[in-house]
Write a protein that binds this DNA or RNA. Sequence first.
DNA 1: CTTGCCCCTGACGTCAATGTCAGGTTTTAG
DNA 2: CTAAAACCTGACATTGACGTCAGGGGCAAG
Lengths: 135, 135
Amino acid sequence: MTVDSGEKRMRIGELAERAGVSVRSLRYYEEQKLLTSTRSASGQRHYTDDEIERVRFIQRLYAGGLSSRTIAELLPCVDSPSEENSDAALDRMSQERDRLSTHIAELVQARDALDQLMTSARAYRDQLQAASAGV
Amino acid sequence: MTVDSGEKRMRIGELAERAGVSVRSLRYYEEQKLLTSTRSASGQRHYTDDEIERVRFIQRLYAGGLSSRTIAELLPCVDSPSEENSDAALDRMSQERDRLSTHIAELVQARDALDQLMTSARAYRDQLQAASAGV
DNA sequence: CTTGCCCCTGACGTCAATGTCAGGTTTTAG
DNA sequence: CTAAAACCTGACATTGACGTCAGGGGCAAG
């Protein structure tokens, strides 16, 4: 279904820029088996436009606090949503999903804590203001 | 309003256990000016029960991705919600709040991405199962 | 007093994702 | 052709929040 005919094969610098990451990171992702590249005769990496999305996806998972190793375990089932790894991968994903949810809840708590702080800080400031404006 | 009369002054080991962090972390927090302690004649740290909540609060902010430095900037206004730092602190908090919200949104996106993955993985698996069960 | 446990400081180790530098090749622009 | 820009590998540096170890006290119980 996917036609890879005239897709502009870009080099690492372009992918880096378009995906918003450093060249170093892309090489690192490849080292961690999160990303692959075709190589030119001289050894330069070439990518297709699809990799942009993949990199962004990886970034999202990183932002979610997943480690390279964990991401590497999950990505195979993005690539080929097949194989017997199905069940194990589903478990793994479910587990990570839970972890993520927990983490999100923590962050929301932290934000709430900040909100509380801000509320009392504001109240205090307004009180000061009222006082300085004369009783 | 707060009476600090007979409050059990605990040592670092107890605080660590009750707040759910390592002794090392507590010393680190002190080093980072996030936490203070009174010292006994022999130099041992003593804390009151209040510090338990403070440590938990610090943990929440850490979980929210704030750095020690940032937390250190915010804590003064927890301690004394006063001073002229009010406005600056409010700005700072508001800024961190935004950062947190952004981060939370990213995490939710990551989770959504995982959900999508799981959905398609499940679909694929069920398809396989249907096939193996005979057409 | 000795044993044992908790505490102290100071310093080095760790881990993960990146930065950065060195030294060399390839591609591109003029 | 030539210089600049981009790429390559390999390796060491960095940052943050700790872990861990060394070497040395304090203090209760037996």
